[in-house]
Design a binder for these strands. Sequence first.
RNA 1: GCUCCCGUAGUCUAGUCCGGUCAAGGAUAUCGGGCCUUCGACCCGACAACGCGGGUUCGAAUCCCGCCGGGAGCACCA
Length: 500
Amino acid sequence: MGGPETVAARPVRAADELPELPEATKGKVVLRLAPFPSGALHIGNARMVFLNDYYRRRYDGRLLLVFDDTVGSEEKRVDSELFGVIQEDLRRCGVDVDGVLYKSDRLATHYQWAERVIALGATYVCVCPSELLQANRRAGVACPERTETIEETQALWKRMLSGEFAPGEAVLRLKTDLQGPDPAFRDRVLFRISDLDHPRVGHRWRVWPLLEFSWAVDDIELGITHVLRGKDLVMEDRMERHVWDLLGIRGPPFLHWGLLRVREAKISKSKSYVEVKSGVYDGWADPRTWSLASLVRRGITVDSMRSFTMSFGLSLADIEVPAETLYAENRTRIDPIARRRMFAADPVTLQVEGFPADLISVTLPNHPERQELGDRTLPLSGSFLLARSDVVAHAGETIRLKDLANVELPATIPDSGPVAGTFAGRENRRVPRLQWIPEGHSVSVDLLDLQGQHLVGVAEAALRDAAPGEVLQFERFGFVRTEDDWTPRSSPVRVCYGHP
RNA sequence: GCUCCCGUAGUCUAGUCCGGUCAAGGAUAUCGGGCCUUCGACCCGACAACGCGGGUUCGAAUCCCGCCGGGAGCACCA
């Protein structure tokens, strides 16, 4: 025992496939997903979700959702709202679980195991203040209680359970090598006392296991065959193995992956929590959370998220990937199906002098390559709405109203009121093409951007044809998705920005 | 400081276990060209990498040693 011999993934495999799980038998694999219910699943959690799901499918195995809701701490509180949110996240991501369990239901079992290791003399009840405990750990010095007998430990443990100690006054610690080279591994705490109110079980328990011990118990009790977890938890492997070695148990192998960060996503679970709870953020699907739900809201398909995540495999390197990589993945999926619409943010009216009076409408395809997606007809009058930034950027130039006509723009653009342009023919010229909306036939649009700001703009009336949750492309602007709770009858049309 | 993990092009990744088929494959980005009436898509092309130093070997991205760099842990959080 000792060294954290992370099980190496078998590289024997076909192209595009992840390594085999060691000692895995089809139909017999049991995996577990163990989120802490303090926030929605976000892009950083995606590996945990999709890798476990991948192997469950590959081996026709079972996947348990086990909420890691030991009581937490003042800073990390369990919030019962998240039990439902997380399950909904998984459902939305097409991840089926074969059972939902709660750590907080399993304390009696954890206690039984505690008694087994206590009876082995492998533990002691330590009453040092935590600062002293930590100082001794660093120094490799034993606390006085370390020499207590099994009987004394058993008695103290009973007193912990019966409520004779206040939080912080006593903990159950595992005896490891105090001279061991890794200070992090010396005599770790197995159980501590907490008075925090638990949203599911209230104050029923005061003595709570720490994550490592609870998993040493539950990975065995639940018959988990492979533990797939982030590499931030490698020391927990050692702890679990240490406990199993004590009891002569052969536990499951562990596989890890490194930390995945998306460059643009500065994820702070605690900040998100505060902002969502206070209403500053628009729920757990606010784009600023980078939650999986928020990505769905932005029109990023689950399939895109899955292949994005899986492309990193089981690499142990900590990586930072630009969001563009995810967007590129998504574009391959949505570009062929997204209907095109024209949108103008902060619109300005352009009145085109000399616009042909007989040109009363134009019919444009909904998609440049796929005729089967249909078309729409825009009525024309010579008066158009364009994005102010476009008009300003091309002042004094000849531009082309995309798919329609060329227009000379004046050299100066007034701060308010209409802009007067001059018709310059309909032939297809290689000049900047700007999207436009016929005035009098527009719908207003409320676009939620990635900073949580609402952008106001206009779009062509055909945008009303969109279904809630439809992914569209605003030409020269980017992909958007209509909000789920928007209805075609209501105004403005509400969309969430996706990506370029 | 101690422990562990990681180090292939700008960013990811395949290959490393079992050395030769790797004068290193793919994706993405960037640049150039083509095409479609989008700043989007598609097609073609280009650029670009084995952290450094020793060693073993006929042969090293792959094995060994040393170093350097990055990350994580050293919580009565998960």
